[in-house]
Amino acid sequence: MASQGTKRSYEQMETDGERQNATEIRASVGKMIDGIGRFYIQMCTELKLSDYEGRLIQNSLTIERMVLSAFDERRNKYLEEHPSAGKDPKKTGGPIYKRVDRKWMRELVLYDKEEIRRIWRQANNGDDATAGLTHMMIWHSNLNDTTYQRTRALVRTGMDPRMCSLMQGSTLPRRSGAAGAAVKGVGTMVMELIRMIKRGINDRNFWRGENGRKTRSAYERMCNILKGKFQTAAQRAMMDQVRESRNPGNAEIEDLIFLARSALILRGSVAHKSCLPACVYGPAVASGYDFEKEGYSLVGIDPFKLLQNSQVYSLIRPNENPAHKSQLVWMACNSAAFEDLRVLSFIRGTKVSPRGKLSTRGVQIASNENMDAMESSTLELRSRYWAIRTRSGGNTNQQRASAGQISVQPAFSVQRNLPFDKPTIMAAFTGNTEGRTSDMRAEIIRMMEGAKPEEMSFQGRGVFELSDERAANPIVPSFDMSNEGSYFFGDNAEEYDN
Protein backbone atom coordinates (compact mmCIF):
# COMPACT_ATOMS: atom_id res chain seq x y z
CA MET A 1 0.00 0.00 0.00
CA ALA A 2 1.36 3.39 -0.99
CA SER A 3 0.66 5.13 2.31
CA GLN A 4 2.50 2.45 4.27
CA GLY A 5 5.10 4.99 5.38
CA THR A 6 2.55 7.14 7.18
CA LYS A 7 1.21 4.26 9.24
CA ARG A 8 2.77 2.69 12.30
CA SER A 9 3.84 -0.88 11.69
CA TYR A 10 1.77 -3.48 13.46
CA GLU A 11 4.54 -4.27 15.85
CA GLN A 12 4.37 -0.64 16.97
CA MET A 13 0.61 -0.93 17.39
CA GLU A 14 1.19 -4.17 19.24
CA THR A 15 3.56 -2.51 21.69
CA ASP A 16 2.05 0.99 21.92
CA GLY A 17 5.41 2.26 20.67
CA GLU A 18 6.22 5.56 19.07
CA ARG A 19 8.33 5.30 15.92
CA GLN A 20 10.98 2.68 16.51
CA ASN A 21 13.54 1.10 14.26
CA ALA A 22 13.30 -2.58 13.34
CA THR A 23 15.59 -3.74 16.14
CA GLU A 24 13.67 -1.81 18.79
CA ILE A 25 10.39 -3.16 17.46
CA ARG A 26 11.70 -6.73 17.56
CA ALA A 27 12.88 -6.19 21.13
CA SER A 28 9.60 -4.70 22.36
CA VAL A 29 7.54 -7.46 20.74
CA GLY A 30 9.97 -9.95 22.31
CA LYS A 31 9.45 -8.31 25.69
CA MET A 32 5.69 -8.72 25.29
CA ILE A 33 6.11 -12.44 24.47
CA ASP A 34 8.46 -12.88 27.46
CA GLY A 35 5.79 -11.42 29.73
CA ILE A 36 3.10 -13.79 28.46
CA GLY A 37 5.50 -16.72 28.85
CA ARG A 38 6.51 -15.81 32.42
CA PHE A 39 2.86 -15.33 33.38
CA TYR A 40 1.98 -18.74 31.95
CA ILE A 41 4.80 -20.49 33.84
CA GLN A 42 3.65 -18.89 37.09
CA MET A 43 0.01 -19.89 36.49
CA CYS A 44 1.03 -23.50 35.81
CA THR A 45 2.86 -23.48 39.15
CA GLU A 46 -0.18 -22.00 40.95
CA LEU A 47 -2.44 -24.63 39.41
CA LYS A 48 0.09 -27.44 40.02
CA LEU A 49 0.04 -28.52 36.38
CA SER A 50 2.43 -31.17 35.10
CA ASP A 51 4.52 -30.34 32.03
CA TYR A 52 2.05 -32.23 29.81
CA GLU A 53 -1.00 -30.55 31.38
CA GLY A 54 0.68 -27.17 30.94
CA ARG A 55 1.06 -27.85 27.22
CA LEU A 56 -2.64 -28.69 26.84
CA ILE A 57 -4.23 -26.04 24.64
CA GLN A 58 -7.53 -26.17 26.57
CA ASN A 59 -5.69 -25.24 29.80
CA SER A 60 -3.91 -22.47 27.94
CA LEU A 61 -7.24 -21.02 26.75
CA THR A 62 -8.68 -21.06 30.29
CA ILE A 63 -5.62 -19.29 31.72
CA GLU A 64 -5.62 -16.70 28.91
CA ARG A 65 -9.35 -16.09 29.45
CA MET A 66 -8.84 -15.61 33.18
CA VAL A 67 -6.29 -12.85 32.75
CA LEU A 68 -8.33 -11.14 30.02
CA SER A 69 -11.37 -11.20 32.28
CA ALA A 70 -9.33 -9.90 35.24
CA PHE A 71 -8.32 -6.84 33.19
CA ASP A 72 -11.72 -6.21 31.57
CA GLU A 73 -12.41 -3.01 33.51
CA ARG A 74 -15.70 -2.12 31.88
CA ARG A 75 -17.20 -5.53 32.42
CA ASN A 76 -15.85 -5.70 35.97
CA LYS A 77 -17.48 -2.37 36.75
CA TYR A 78 -20.73 -3.52 35.15
CA LEU A 79 -20.71 -6.76 37.17
CA GLU A 80 -20.18 -4.84 40.41
CA GLU A 81 -23.11 -2.51 39.61
CA HIS A 82 -25.45 -5.25 38.31
CA PRO A 83 -24.83 -8.24 40.57
CA SER A 84 -26.19 -11.46 39.09
CA ALA A 85 -27.00 -14.54 41.14
CA GLY A 86 -24.16 -16.98 41.59
CA LYS A 87 -21.52 -14.79 39.91
CA ASP A 88 -18.83 -13.24 42.05
CA PRO A 89 -17.69 -10.09 40.21
CA LYS A 90 -14.32 -10.22 41.96
CA LYS A 91 -13.48 -13.76 40.88
CA THR A 92 -12.55 -15.39 37.60
CA GLY A 93 -11.91 -18.98 36.62
CA GLY A 94 -12.69 -21.81 34.27
CA PRO A 95 -12.10 -25.48 33.53
CA ILE A 96 -8.61 -26.89 34.10
CA TYR A 97 -7.95 -30.39 32.79
CA LYS A 98 -5.74 -32.84 34.66
CA ARG A 99 -4.67 -36.40 34.01
CA VAL A 100 -5.78 -38.59 36.93
CA ASP A 101 -5.50 -42.41 36.89
CA ARG A 102 -5.00 -42.56 33.11
CA LYS A 103 -8.12 -40.43 32.59
CA TRP A 104 -8.74 -36.75 31.90
CA MET A 105 -10.61 -34.94 34.67
CA ARG A 106 -12.15 -31.48 34.58
CA GLU A 107 -11.60 -29.26 37.59
CA LEU A 108 -13.26 -25.84 37.89
CA VAL A 109 -10.87 -23.31 39.41
CA LEU A 110 -11.71 -19.89 40.84
CA TYR A 111 -9.26 -17.06 41.56
CA ASP A 112 -9.47 -13.50 42.79
CA LYS A 113 -9.12 -11.19 39.81
CA GLU A 114 -6.84 -9.06 41.97
CA GLU A 115 -4.52 -12.05 42.43
CA ILE A 116 -4.43 -12.77 38.68
CA ARG A 117 -3.66 -9.11 37.97
CA ARG A 118 -0.83 -9.27 40.50
CA ILE A 119 0.69 -12.36 38.84
CA TRP A 120 0.36 -10.78 35.37
CA ARG A 121 1.98 -7.50 36.44
CA GLN A 122 4.75 -9.34 38.23
CA ALA A 123 5.50 -11.30 35.04
CA ASN A 124 5.55 -8.01 33.11
CA ASN A 125 7.92 -5.99 35.33
CA GLY A 126 5.08 -4.28 37.15
CA ASP A 127 3.34 -2.99 34.00
CA ASP A 128 -0.25 -3.63 32.94
CA ALA A 129 1.29 -4.82 29.65
CA THR A 130 -1.80 -4.10 27.57
CA ALA A 131 0.01 -5.21 24.42
CA GLY A 132 0.31 -8.75 25.79
CA LEU A 133 -3.40 -8.80 26.65
CA THR A 134 -4.31 -7.64 23.14
CA HIS A 135 -2.02 -10.29 21.71
CA MET A 136 -4.01 -12.99 23.51
CA MET A 137 -7.28 -11.44 22.33
CA ILE A 138 -6.06 -11.64 18.73
CA TRP A 139 -5.09 -15.30 19.21
CA HIS A 140 -8.62 -16.04 20.48
CA SER A 141 -10.06 -14.06 17.58
CA ASN A 142 -7.96 -15.97 15.03
CA LEU A 143 -9.09 -19.25 16.59
CA ASN A 144 -12.74 -18.18 16.36
CA ASP A 145 -12.25 -17.11 12.73
CA THR A 146 -10.95 -20.58 11.90
CA THR A 147 -13.59 -22.45 13.87
CA TYR A 148 -16.85 -20.64 13.14
CA GLN A 149 -18.50 -19.14 10.11
CA ARG A 150 -20.39 -15.99 11.07
CA THR A 151 -23.46 -16.66 8.91
CA ARG A 152 -26.00 -15.51 11.45
CA ALA A 153 -24.18 -12.30 12.30
CA LEU A 154 -23.84 -11.45 8.60
CA VAL A 155 -27.50 -12.10 7.85
CA ARG A 156 -28.65 -10.08 10.87
CA THR A 157 -26.88 -6.98 9.59
CA GLY A 158 -28.21 -7.46 6.06
CA MET A 159 -25.01 -8.83 4.55
CA ASP A 160 -24.55 -11.98 2.48
CA PRO A 161 -23.09 -15.01 4.33
CA ARG A 162 -20.85 -15.61 1.32
CA MET A 163 -18.94 -12.48 2.30
CA CYS A 164 -17.37 -14.33 5.24
CA SER A 165 -13.82 -13.70 3.96
CA LEU A 166 -14.28 -10.08 5.10
CA MET A 167 -15.06 -11.03 8.70
CA GLN A 168 -11.61 -11.37 10.24
CA GLY A 169 -11.58 -10.23 13.87
CA SER A 170 -15.37 -10.16 14.18
CA THR A 171 -15.22 -11.55 17.73
CA LEU A 172 -12.50 -9.18 18.99
CA PRO A 173 -13.59 -7.19 22.04
CA ARG A 174 -14.01 -3.44 21.64
CA ARG A 175 -11.07 -2.76 23.92
CA SER A 176 -8.50 -4.36 21.63
CA GLY A 177 -6.97 -1.01 20.64
CA ALA A 178 -4.96 -0.12 17.53
CA ALA A 179 -3.50 -3.61 17.16
CA GLY A 180 -7.04 -5.02 17.20
CA ALA A 181 -8.31 -2.48 14.66
CA ALA A 182 -5.46 -3.38 12.30
CA VAL A 183 -6.52 -7.03 12.05
CA LYS A 184 -10.24 -6.40 11.61
CA GLY A 185 -11.60 -7.20 8.16
CA VAL A 186 -13.70 -4.79 6.08
CA GLY A 187 -16.85 -6.80 6.86
CA THR A 188 -16.19 -6.63 10.59
CA MET A 189 -15.92 -2.84 10.51
CA VAL A 190 -19.03 -2.58 8.32
CA MET A 191 -20.96 -4.79 10.72
CA GLU A 192 -19.93 -2.71 13.74
CA LEU A 193 -21.00 0.48 11.95
CA ILE A 194 -24.33 -0.97 10.81
CA ARG A 195 -25.14 -2.08 14.35
CA MET A 196 -24.41 1.43 15.54
CA ILE A 197 -26.57 3.07 12.85
CA LYS A 198 -29.44 0.67 13.60
CA ARG A 199 -29.32 1.64 17.26
CA GLY A 200 -29.51 5.26 16.19
CA ILE A 201 -32.57 4.53 14.06
CA ASN A 202 -34.34 2.74 16.91
CA ASP A 203 -33.28 4.98 19.78
CA ARG A 204 -33.91 8.69 19.28
CA ASN A 205 -31.44 9.73 21.94
CA PHE A 206 -28.54 7.66 20.67
CA TRP A 207 -26.80 10.58 18.93
CA ARG A 208 -28.02 13.24 21.38
CA GLY A 209 -26.72 14.88 24.51
CA GLU A 210 -23.41 14.36 26.28
CA ASN A 211 -23.33 10.62 25.52
CA GLY A 212 -24.32 11.28 21.92
CA ARG A 213 -21.16 13.31 21.42
CA LYS A 214 -19.04 10.36 22.54
CA THR A 215 -21.10 8.07 20.33
CA ARG A 216 -20.58 10.38 17.37
CA SER A 217 -16.82 10.52 17.81
CA ALA A 218 -16.70 6.71 18.12
CA TYR A 219 -18.73 6.49 14.88
CA GLU A 220 -16.34 8.82 13.05
CA ARG A 221 -13.31 7.00 14.41
CA MET A 222 -14.66 3.65 13.17
CA CYS A 223 -15.41 5.22 9.77
CA ASN A 224 -11.81 6.42 9.56
CA ILE A 225 -10.45 2.98 10.48
CA LEU A 226 -12.55 1.44 7.72
CA LYS A 227 -11.59 4.18 5.25
CA GLY A 228 -7.92 3.42 5.95
CA LYS A 229 -8.45 -0.19 4.94
CA PHE A 230 -9.67 0.69 1.44
CA GLN A 231 -7.07 1.04 -1.30
CA THR A 232 -9.01 2.98 -3.97
CA ALA A 233 -9.96 6.65 -3.99
CA ALA A 234 -13.61 5.99 -4.83
CA GLN A 235 -14.09 3.63 -1.90
CA ARG A 236 -12.45 6.15 0.42
CA ALA A 237 -14.57 9.01 -0.91
CA MET A 238 -17.67 6.97 -0.21
CA MET A 239 -16.47 6.41 3.37
CA ASP A 240 -16.10 10.18 3.77
CA GLN A 241 -19.77 10.50 2.79
CA VAL A 242 -20.81 7.91 5.36
CA ARG A 243 -18.71 9.56 8.06
CA GLU A 244 -19.98 13.08 7.40
CA SER A 245 -23.66 12.13 7.34
CA ARG A 246 -25.66 14.40 9.68
CA ASN A 247 -28.01 11.67 10.76
CA PRO A 248 -26.81 8.21 9.75
CA GLY A 249 -29.64 5.97 8.57
CA ASN A 250 -30.64 3.48 5.89
CA ALA A 251 -28.81 5.31 3.11
CA GLU A 252 -25.55 4.85 5.04
CA ILE A 253 -26.33 1.19 5.69
CA GLU A 254 -26.86 0.71 1.94
CA ASP A 255 -23.56 2.46 1.18
CA LEU A 256 -21.70 0.33 3.73
CA ILE A 257 -23.10 -2.94 2.37
CA PHE A 258 -22.18 -1.78 -1.14
CA LEU A 259 -18.64 -1.07 0.05
CA ALA A 260 -18.39 -4.44 1.81
CA ARG A 261 -19.39 -6.23 -1.40
CA SER A 262 -16.93 -4.18 -3.41
CA ALA A 263 -14.17 -5.35 -1.04
CA LEU A 264 -14.62 -8.91 -2.32
CA ILE A 265 -12.83 -7.76 -5.47
CA LEU A 266 -11.19 -4.43 -4.54
CA ARG A 267 -9.75 -5.87 -1.35
CA GLY A 268 -9.02 -3.88 1.76
CA SER A 269 -5.69 -4.01 3.55
CA VAL A 270 -6.04 -6.05 6.69
CA ALA A 271 -3.10 -6.98 8.92
CA HIS A 272 -2.25 -10.60 9.71
CA LYS A 273 -0.31 -11.56 12.81
CA SER A 274 0.73 -14.94 14.06
CA CYS A 275 -0.42 -14.95 17.66
CA LEU A 276 0.27 -18.24 19.44
CA PRO A 277 -1.32 -19.71 22.57
CA ALA A 278 0.38 -18.90 25.88
CA CYS A 279 1.33 -22.58 26.29
CA VAL A 280 3.78 -22.12 23.38
CA TYR A 281 5.48 -19.05 24.88
CA GLY A 282 5.64 -20.46 28.43
CA PRO A 283 7.80 -23.54 27.75
CA ALA A 284 10.05 -21.50 25.40
CA VAL A 285 10.74 -18.97 28.16
CA ALA A 286 11.14 -21.80 30.69
CA SER A 287 13.79 -23.40 28.49
CA GLY A 288 15.84 -20.22 28.82
CA TYR A 289 15.04 -18.49 25.52
CA ASP A 290 15.17 -14.70 25.90
CA PHE A 291 12.66 -13.22 23.45
CA GLU A 292 13.53 -9.62 24.27
CA LYS A 293 17.25 -10.18 23.70
CA GLU A 294 16.78 -12.29 20.56
CA GLY A 295 13.98 -10.11 19.17
CA TYR A 296 10.69 -11.40 17.78
CA SER A 297 8.31 -10.52 14.96
CA LEU A 298 4.70 -11.57 14.47
CA VAL A 299 4.90 -11.28 10.70
CA GLY A 300 8.13 -13.04 9.76
CA ILE A 301 9.82 -16.38 10.32
CA ASP A 302 9.78 -16.27 14.15
CA PRO A 303 6.35 -17.85 14.80
CA PHE A 304 7.16 -20.61 12.29
CA LYS A 305 10.44 -21.41 14.05
CA LEU A 306 8.73 -21.38 17.43
CA LEU A 307 5.98 -23.77 16.28
CA GLN A 308 8.61 -26.00 14.64
CA ASN A 309 10.07 -26.67 18.10
CA SER A 310 6.94 -26.70 20.25
CA GLN A 311 4.93 -29.56 21.70
CA VAL A 312 1.25 -28.65 22.13
CA TYR A 313 -1.44 -31.15 23.06
CA SER A 314 -5.20 -31.05 22.73
CA LEU A 315 -8.12 -32.98 24.14
CA ILE A 316 -9.86 -34.95 21.39
CA ARG A 317 -13.52 -35.97 21.49
CA PRO A 318 -14.38 -39.58 20.62
CA ASN A 319 -15.31 -39.01 16.95
CA GLU A 320 -12.84 -36.26 16.12
CA ASN A 321 -9.84 -36.57 13.83
CA PRO A 322 -6.61 -35.36 15.50
CA ALA A 323 -5.12 -34.36 12.13
CA HIS A 324 -8.15 -32.16 11.48
CA LYS A 325 -7.90 -30.61 14.94
CA SER A 326 -4.26 -29.85 14.13
CA GLN A 327 -5.20 -28.12 10.88
CA LEU A 328 -7.73 -25.94 12.70
CA VAL A 329 -5.17 -24.77 15.26
CA TRP A 330 -2.39 -24.43 12.65
CA MET A 331 -4.58 -22.07 10.61
CA ALA A 332 -5.44 -20.07 13.73
CA CYS A 333 -1.78 -19.77 14.72
CA ASN A 334 -0.97 -18.41 11.27
CA SER A 335 -3.96 -16.06 11.13
CA ALA A 336 -5.00 -17.79 7.93
CA ALA A 337 -8.73 -18.50 8.19
CA PHE A 338 -9.51 -16.59 4.99
CA GLU A 339 -6.40 -17.40 2.99
CA ASP A 340 -6.50 -19.47 -0.19
CA LEU A 341 -6.28 -23.15 0.80
CA ARG A 342 -3.90 -23.90 -2.07
CA VAL A 343 -1.40 -21.37 -0.71
CA LEU A 344 -1.80 -22.86 2.77
CA SER A 345 -1.38 -26.44 1.54
CA PHE A 346 1.90 -25.49 -0.13
CA ILE A 347 3.27 -23.68 2.93
CA ARG A 348 2.19 -26.36 5.36
CA GLY A 349 3.35 -29.21 3.16
CA THR A 350 0.16 -31.21 3.73
CA LYS A 351 -3.26 -30.71 2.21
CA VAL A 352 -5.37 -28.11 3.98
CA SER A 353 -9.08 -28.95 3.65
CA PRO A 354 -12.22 -26.81 3.76
CA ARG A 355 -13.94 -26.42 7.14
CA GLY A 356 -16.90 -28.57 6.17
CA LYS A 357 -14.64 -31.55 5.45
CA LEU A 358 -12.99 -31.49 8.87
CA SER A 359 -14.15 -33.97 11.51
CA THR A 360 -13.55 -31.66 14.42
CA ARG A 361 -15.53 -29.27 16.54
CA GLY A 362 -14.07 -26.25 18.31
CA VAL A 363 -11.05 -26.49 20.58
CA GLN A 364 -12.93 -25.53 23.73
CA ILE A 365 -14.82 -28.21 25.62
CA ALA A 366 -18.26 -27.28 26.97
CA SER A 367 -18.90 -27.78 30.69
CA ASN A 368 -21.61 -30.36 30.02
CA GLU A 369 -19.47 -32.60 27.81
CA ASN A 370 -18.63 -36.01 29.20
CA MET A 371 -14.93 -36.40 30.06
CA ASP A 372 -14.94 -40.21 30.27
CA ALA A 373 -14.15 -40.87 26.64
CA MET A 374 -11.77 -37.89 26.19
CA GLU A 375 -8.37 -38.68 24.75
CA SER A 376 -5.53 -36.29 24.07
CA SER A 377 -3.11 -36.06 21.18
CA THR A 378 -0.24 -33.95 19.88
CA LEU A 379 -1.16 -31.04 17.62
CA GLU A 380 0.97 -31.05 14.45
CA LEU A 381 1.72 -27.33 14.05
CA ARG A 382 4.89 -27.51 11.95
CA SER A 383 5.22 -26.21 8.40
CA ARG A 384 7.25 -27.14 5.33
CA TYR A 385 8.00 -23.52 4.34
CA TRP A 386 7.51 -20.09 5.84
CA ALA A 387 6.19 -16.92 4.23
CA ILE A 388 5.86 -13.27 5.15
CA ARG A 389 2.45 -12.17 6.43
CA THR A 390 0.78 -9.44 4.39
CA ARG A 391 -1.45 -6.52 5.12
CA SER A 392 -2.27 -5.68 1.55
CA GLY A 393 -5.35 -7.26 0.07
CA GLY A 394 -3.40 -8.01 -3.11
CA ASN A 395 -4.78 -7.18 -6.53
CA THR A 396 -7.61 -9.22 -7.79
CA ASN A 397 -8.47 -12.12 -9.89
CA GLN A 398 -11.05 -14.49 -11.08
CA GLN A 399 -11.11 -18.14 -10.21
CA ARG A 400 -13.59 -20.96 -9.98
CA ALA A 401 -15.36 -20.18 -6.73
CA SER A 402 -17.74 -21.97 -4.46
CA ALA A 403 -21.25 -21.99 -3.14
CA GLY A 404 -19.92 -20.90 0.24
CA GLN A 405 -17.16 -18.35 0.50
CA ILE A 406 -16.75 -16.35 -2.72
CA SER A 407 -13.46 -14.57 -2.13
CA VAL A 408 -10.31 -14.76 -0.01
CA GLN A 409 -8.34 -12.33 2.16
CA PRO A 410 -4.65 -13.16 1.70
CA ALA A 411 -2.63 -13.77 4.86
CA PHE A 412 0.69 -14.45 3.14
CA SER A 413 2.64 -12.39 0.69
CA VAL A 414 2.90 -15.15 -1.92
CA GLN A 415 2.38 -14.92 -5.69
CA ARG A 416 -0.92 -16.39 -6.85
CA ASN A 417 -4.18 -15.82 -8.67
CA LEU A 418 -6.70 -14.62 -6.12
CA PRO A 419 -9.91 -16.60 -6.34
CA PHE A 420 -13.28 -14.89 -6.46
CA ASP A 421 -16.45 -15.70 -8.28
CA LYS A 422 -16.88 -12.61 -10.43
CA PRO A 423 -20.34 -13.32 -11.90
CA THR A 424 -21.74 -14.02 -8.43
CA ILE A 425 -20.21 -10.88 -6.96
CA MET A 426 -21.15 -8.63 -9.89
CA ALA A 427 -24.75 -9.89 -9.85
CA ALA A 428 -25.15 -8.05 -6.56
CA PHE A 429 -24.34 -4.74 -8.25
CA THR A 430 -27.15 -4.46 -10.77
CA GLY A 431 -29.16 -1.29 -11.01
CA ASN A 432 -28.63 0.45 -7.73
CA THR A 433 -26.36 3.34 -8.69
CA GLU A 434 -28.64 6.27 -7.99
CA GLY A 435 -28.51 8.61 -5.03
CA ARG A 436 -25.81 10.90 -3.72
CA THR A 437 -23.01 8.36 -4.07
CA SER A 438 -23.91 7.42 -7.66
CA ASP A 439 -20.68 8.64 -9.28
CA MET A 440 -18.54 6.82 -6.73
CA ARG A 441 -20.62 3.67 -7.07
CA ALA A 442 -20.29 3.76 -10.84
CA GLU A 443 -16.53 4.23 -10.54
CA ILE A 444 -16.21 1.32 -8.07
CA ILE A 445 -18.27 -0.98 -10.30
CA ARG A 446 -16.14 0.01 -13.29
CA MET A 447 -12.97 -0.93 -11.40
CA MET A 448 -14.47 -4.24 -10.33
CA GLU A 449 -15.48 -5.09 -13.86
CA GLY A 450 -11.98 -4.27 -15.02
CA ALA A 451 -10.35 -6.74 -12.63
CA LYS A 452 -8.49 -9.15 -14.92
CA PRO A 453 -8.43 -12.91 -14.40
CA GLU A 454 -4.89 -13.37 -15.65
CA GLU A 455 -3.24 -10.87 -13.29
CA MET A 456 -0.95 -12.32 -10.67
CA SER A 457 -1.10 -10.97 -7.17
CA PHE A 458 2.05 -10.46 -5.06
CA GLN A 459 4.18 -10.78 -8.20
CA GLY A 460 7.42 -12.68 -7.61
CA ARG A 461 6.77 -13.14 -3.90
CA GLY A 462 7.51 -16.62 -2.73
CA VAL A 463 7.81 -18.88 0.26
CA PHE A 464 11.10 -19.71 1.97
CA GLU A 465 12.86 -22.75 3.38
CA LEU A 466 12.89 -22.71 7.18
CA SER A 467 16.70 -22.55 7.02
CA ASP A 468 16.45 -19.31 4.99
CA GLU A 469 15.97 -16.87 7.86
CA ARG A 470 16.97 -13.81 5.84
CA ALA A 471 14.38 -14.60 3.15
CA ALA A 472 17.14 -14.61 0.53
CA ASN A 473 15.87 -17.32 -1.84
CA PRO A 474 12.17 -17.06 -2.62
CA ILE A 475 10.50 -20.18 -3.99
CA VAL A 476 7.49 -19.26 -6.11
CA PRO A 477 5.05 -22.06 -5.34
CA SER A 478 2.97 -24.10 -7.74
CA PHE A 479 -0.66 -24.73 -6.86
CA ASP A 480 -2.96 -27.61 -7.58
CA MET A 481 -5.80 -25.71 -9.23
CA SER A 482 -8.11 -28.72 -9.09
CA ASN A 483 -8.41 -28.18 -5.34
CA GLU A 484 -10.88 -25.86 -3.72
CA GLY A 485 -9.59 -22.41 -2.73
CA SER A 486 -12.12 -21.40 -0.09
CA TYR A 487 -12.08 -22.67 3.48
CA PHE A 488 -15.77 -22.08 4.19
CA PHE A 489 -16.72 -23.79 0.94
CA GLY A 490 -20.46 -24.66 0.77
CA ASP A 491 -20.00 -24.98 4.41
CA ASN A 492 -21.57 -26.35 7.56
CA ALA A 493 -19.27 -24.95 10.25
CA GLU A 494 -20.88 -24.30 13.60
CA GLU A 495 -22.13 -20.83 14.34
CA TYR A 496 -20.18 -18.68 16.80
CA ASP A 497 -22.15 -18.12 20.01
CA ASN A 498 -20.90 -15.80 22.71
Results as ranks from 00 to 15, higher is better:
Arg441Val: 02
Phe39Lys: 05
Thr215Asn: 10
Glu369Trp: 05
Lys227Gly: 03
Cys279Trp: 10
Ile96Lys: 08
Gly393Asn: 04
Ser141Asn: 04
Tyr52Asn: 12
Asp240Cys: 01
Tyr296Trp: 08
Ile197Trp: 10
Gly435Thr: 10
Glu73Ser: 12
Thr134Val: 14
Gly356Cys: 08
Thr92Trp: 07
Arg156Ala: 07
Tyr313Met: 04
Met238Ala: 15
Glu14Leu: 14
Glu294Lys: 13
Met374Phe: 02
Leu133Gly: 03
Ile365Asp: 03
Leu259Thr: 02
Glu64Tyr: 12
Gln311Cys: 00
Ala471Tyr: 13
Tyr40Phe: 10
Asn395Pro: 01
Ala2Tyr: 00
Asp302Gln: 15
Pro474Glu: 14
Ala260Glu: 08
Asn368Phe: 03
Gln308Trp: 11
Tyr281Gln: 11
Ile25Gln: 15
Phe489Lys: 02
Phe412Ile: 13
Phe206Lys: 08
Ala323Met: 09
Val352Arg: 02
Tyr148Gln: 02
Met374Arg: 02
Asn247Arg: 05
Leu68Gly: 12
Thr424Arg: 00
Phe479Glu: 00
Leu341Val: 14
Arg19Tyr: 05
Ala428Lys: 11
Ile225Gly: 08
Ile41Ser: 14
Leu61Met: 10
Trp207Pro: 00
Arg221Met: 08
Tyr10Thr: 08
Cys223Leu: 12
Ala234His: 06
Glu11Gln: 10
Lys305Thr: 08
Thr62Pro: 06
Gly394Asp: 06
Met196Gln: 15
Ser377Cys: 09
Leu172Tyr: 01
Lys214Gln: 14
Met239His: 02
Leu328Val: 14
Val186Ala: 04
Cys333His: 02
Arg152Asn: 04
Arg121Tyr: 14
Thr171Cys: 15
Ser269Tyr: 04
Arg348Tyr: 05
Glu434Phe: 00
Leu256Thr: 10
Arg470Ile: 00
Pro410Ala: 15
Ile116Gly: 06
Trp120Asn: 10
Leu47Tyr: 11
Arg162Pro: 10
Asn498Glu: 00
Gly460Met: 14
Phe206Arg: 03
Asn370Phe: 07
Pro303Val: 11
Ser176Ala: 15
Leu193Lys: 04
Ile63Gly: 00
Glu320Met: 08
Lys452Trp: 00
Pro277Tyr: 08
Arg152Thr: 08
Leu298Arg: 09
Ala263Lys: 00
Ser377Thr: 14
Asn250Tyr: 07
Ile301Ala: 12
Ser486Arg: 01
Leu328Thr: 03
Gln12Asn: 14
Glu252Ser: 02
Leu418Met: 15
Pro477Glu: 03
Val100Trp: 01
Ala70His: 02
Thr350Lys: 14
Leu143Asn: 04
Ser314Lys: 02
Leu344Glu: 05
Glu80Asp: 13
Leu266Phe: 07
Met43Ala: 10
Ser297Glu: 04
Pro83Lys: 03
Ser287Asn: 14
Arg199Tyr: 13
Met136Asn: 03
Ala373Lys: 12
Val285Met: 14
Lys273Gln: 05
Pro95Thr: 05
Ser274His: 03
Tyr10Asn: 13
Ala22Thr: 14
Val414Pro: 00
Ala451Lys: 12
Ser326Lys: 05
Arg436Thr: 05
Gly37Pro: 07
Thr62Ser: 15
Cys279Leu: 13
Val155Leu: 05
Met105Thr: 13
Gln235His: 08
Met66Pro: 05
Glu11Arg: 05
Glu494His: 12
Glu455Asp: 08
Thr437Phe: 06
Arg361Pro: 03
Ser60Ala: 07
Glu46Asp: 11
Arg461Thr: 08
Val414Met: 15
Gly404Phe: 11
Thr15Val: 08
Gly485Thr: 00
Leu166Gly: 00
Glu320Ser: 07
Ala85Glu: 03
Leu110Lys: 12
Arg195Tyr: 06
Val408Ala: 14
Asp340Glu: 11
Met191Val: 11
Ile63Phe: 05
Thr430Cys: 06
Glu11Val: 13
Asp145Lys: 07
Arg162Phe: 11
Ile197Met: 13
Thr147Phe: 06
Lys91Pro: 02
Arg174Ser: 07
Thr430Pro: 15
Ala336Lys: 00
Ile138Pro: 09
Tyr487Ile: 07
Glu449Trp: 00
Asp240Phe: 01
Arg204Phe: 11
Ala271Val: 08
Ile425Asp: 03
Tyr10Val: 14
Lys325Arg: 09
Asp372Ala: 06
Tyr496Arg: 03
Thr157Ile: 15
Phe258Cys: 11
Pro161Arg: 09
Glu244Trp: 02
Pro477Ser: 01
Lys452Val: 14
Pro303Asn: 06
Asn76Pro: 00
Ala428Trp: 00
Glu375Gln: 12
Arg117Gln: 15
Tyr111Phe: 15
Ile36Ser: 09
Ser326Glu: 08
Asn432His: 13
Gln231Glu: 08
Ile138His: 03
Val414Ser: 01
Ala411Leu: 04
Ala323His: 15
Ile36Tyr: 02
Thr151Trp: 10
Phe230Pro: 02
Asn321Asp: 08
Gln241Phe: 11
Asn397His: 08
Gln4Gly: 00
Arg204Lys: 08
Leu418Ser: 00
Ala234Met: 05
Asn309His: 13
Arg19Asp: 04
Pro354Tyr: 12
Ala427Trp: 00
Cys223Trp: 12
Phe291Leu: 12
Phe412Arg: 02
Ala181Ser: 11
Tyr97Ser: 06
Leu259Glu: 10
Glu320Ile: 05
Leu172Thr: 04
Gly485Asn: 02
Arg174Ala: 00
Ser274Ala: 05
Phe489Met: 11
Cys275Ser: 14
Ile201Phe: 04
Arg8Ala: 00
Gly394Gln: 11
Trp139Asn: 06
Ile138Thr: 08
Ala428Ile: 06
Glu254Met: 13
Cys44Ala: 12
Ile365Met: 13
Ser377Phe: 15
Asn395Asp: 05
Glu73Gln: 13
Asp34Asn: 07
Leu110Arg: 08
Lys214Ile: 13
Leu358Arg: 04
His324Pro: 09
Arg246Tyr: 14
Val312Asn: 12
Ala284Phe: 12
His324Ile: 04
Ala493Gly: 10
Ser274Glu: 07
Ser353Tyr: 08
Ile425Asn: 09
Arg152Leu: 02
Ala366Phe: 05
Val67His: 10
Asp112Cys: 12
Asp340Asn: 13
Glu339His: 05
Gly5Cys: 14
Val186Gln: 15
Glu455Asn: 14
Arg102Glu: 01
Ala373Leu: 11
Ile194Ala: 09
Ile96Glu: 05
Val280His: 07
Ala22Trp: 01
Ile475Val: 15
Ala27Glu: 04
Ile36Cys: 05
Gly30Val: 04
Ser217Trp: 08
Ala178Trp: 02
Lys452Thr: 12
Ile201Thr: 15
Val285Gly: 05
Asp127Ile: 11
Ser376Glu: 01
Gly54Asp: 10
Gln235Ser: 03
Ser392Glu: 03
Arg65His: 05
Ser3Met: 12
His135Lys: 11
Val190Thr: 14
His324Val: 03
Lys422Met: 14
Phe479Ser: 13
Leu358Ser: 01
Arg99Ile: 11
Pro303Ala: 15
Ala260Gln: 03
Ser359Ala: 14
Gln399Lys: 15
Ile445Asn: 06
Val270Met: 07
Glu244Arg: 02
Asn211Glu: 13
Trp104Val: 12
Cys164Ile: 12
Arg19Gly: 09
Lys103Gln: 04
Met136Glu: 06
Gly158Lys: 01
Pro322Asp: 11
Tyr219Leu: 14
Leu143Cys: 13
Leu381Ile: 08
Thr232Trp: 03
Tyr111Lys: 00
Ala387Asn: 04
Ala178Gly: 06
Leu68Val: 09
Ser383Thr: 15
Met481Ile: 07
Cys279Phe: 11
Leu379Phe: 10
Glu53Val: 06
Ala332Ile: 04
Gly158Gln: 10
Arg174Val: 05
Glu455Gly: 14
